[in-house]
Simulated scan of single mutants.
Amino acid sequence: MTGFLKIERDGHVVTLTLNRPEKRNAISTAEECAEVADTCRALNRDDHVRVVIVTGEGSSFCAGGDLKGMRDRTGITGGHSGAEIRESYRRGIQMIPLALYEMDIPTIAAVNGPAIGAGLDLACMCDIRIASEAARFAESFVKVGIVPGDGGAYLLPKVVGMPKALEMSLTGDPLNPAEALACGLVNKVVPPGELMQAAHAMAERIAVNPPQAVRLTKRLLRESQHMRLSTLLEMSAAYQALAHGTRDHREAVDSMLEKRVPHFEGR
């Protein structure tokens, strides 16, 4: 572990904080990428975790990649040949979307400040985005003469639609929180001092539900984005059979009929 992440647990909610404020939480090394990916995989195996919040320490969410490392061909963009740079991406930054975006646990990005380049894409890897009024967003790879190398070309169009994704990617122009809200990039904008409270409130609204049903629902919605309806219906029937067989399903029905607060155990 590099100490890039600060991990905090509050009941069933885990907060991951990018903890390099002196570098505006830029992702600089393959080791940092591996720490994020390994942490996400470990949390995904933890049945006690029901929601994960991702945020940044200090005034930035994530400034993307390390420009000095990019200039010097070190870190996550290391290598002097095309083959070496390709492997740097595959074994570095691309580990994060494969782990974070593919988590079954719902994820919330609490965007406390600028989310630039890979930082914006990191936010898009999460299911829900809540922004501080101090946040800024830019798909700015073109400004430094490169392309989105971390999955942004897949992620951003799914969040804002292809026309807006093209505008953001081809101009590299930043969006303020109001513009991000208007195009659906974020779900909600709050004052800076209320950001984590709002993120935790959203997390608790999710965490009170049966955790297995929540995970299955997220996976179903993810898979629906690239399936035919008939295939999705088959998958839905299979997932429904799994959900109907859980104790939490019976507890949910019984608690409604008995007009009491349910107690879910994730079984």
Rank of each mutant, 00 (worst) to 15 (best):
Met1Thr: 07
Met1Trp: 06
Thr2Pro: 01
Leu5Gln: 11
Lys6Val: 05
Ile7Val: 13
His12Asn: 13
His12Val: 04
Val13Gln: 05
Thr15His: 03
Thr15Asp: 01
Thr17Asp: 03
Arg20Thr: 07
Ala34Gln: 13
Val36Cys: 05
Arg41Ala: 05
Arg41Gly: 02
Ala42Gly: 07
Asn44Ala: 09
Val49Ser: 01
Val51Asn: 03
Val51Thr: 03
Val54Pro: 02
Val54Gln: 01
Gly58Thr: 03
Ser59Tyr: 10
Lys68Asn: 15
Gly69Arg: 08
Thr74Ile: 11
Thr77Cys: 12
His80Cys: 07
Gly82Ala: 10
Ile85Met: 12
Arg86Ile: 09
Glu87Ser: 12
Arg90Lys: 12
Gln94Ile: 04
Met95Thr: 15
Leu98Lys: 15
Ala99Lys: 08
Asp104Tyr: 09
Ile105Ala: 07
Ile105Lys: 03
Ile105Trp: 11
Pro106Thr: 04
Ala109Gly: 04
Val111Thr: 09
Pro114Trp: 11
Ile116Arg: 14
Gly117Asp: 13
Leu122Tyr: 14
Ala123Met: 10
Met125Trp: 04
Ile128Gly: 02
Ala131Asn: 05
Ser132Ala: 00
Ala134Glu: 14
Ala134Cys: 07
Ala138Asp: 08
Lys143Glu: 09
Gly145Ala: 00
Gly149Gln: 01
Asp150Met: 08
Leu155Thr: 00
Leu155Trp: 00
Pro157Leu: 04
Pro157Ser: 00
Lys158His: 12
Gly161Ala: 02
Lys164Met: 14
Lys164Ser: 11
Lys164Asp: 15
Leu166Cys: 00
Met168Val: 03
Leu170Met: 13
Pro174Cys: 03
Ala178Ser: 14
Ala178Gly: 11
Val186Trp: 11
Val186Asp: 03
Val190Met: 09
Gly193Glu: 12
Gln197Tyr: 12
His200Tyr: 15
Ala203Leu: 10
Glu204Gly: 02
Glu204Cys: 06
Val208Gly: 02
Asn209Cys: 11
Pro211Glu: 13
Ala213Ser: 13
Val214Asp: 00
Lys218Met: 08
Arg219Tyr: 07
Leu221Trp: 12
Gln225Asp: 09
Gln225Thr: 08
His226Ile: 10
Arg228Tyr: 14
Leu232Val: 06
Leu233Lys: 11
Leu233Asp: 14
Gly245Met: 10
Ala252Tyr: 13
Ala252Met: 14
Ala252Val: 07
Val253Leu: 09
Asp254Ala: 10
Glu258His: 07
Lys259Arg: 13
Val261Met: 13
Arg267Glu: 12
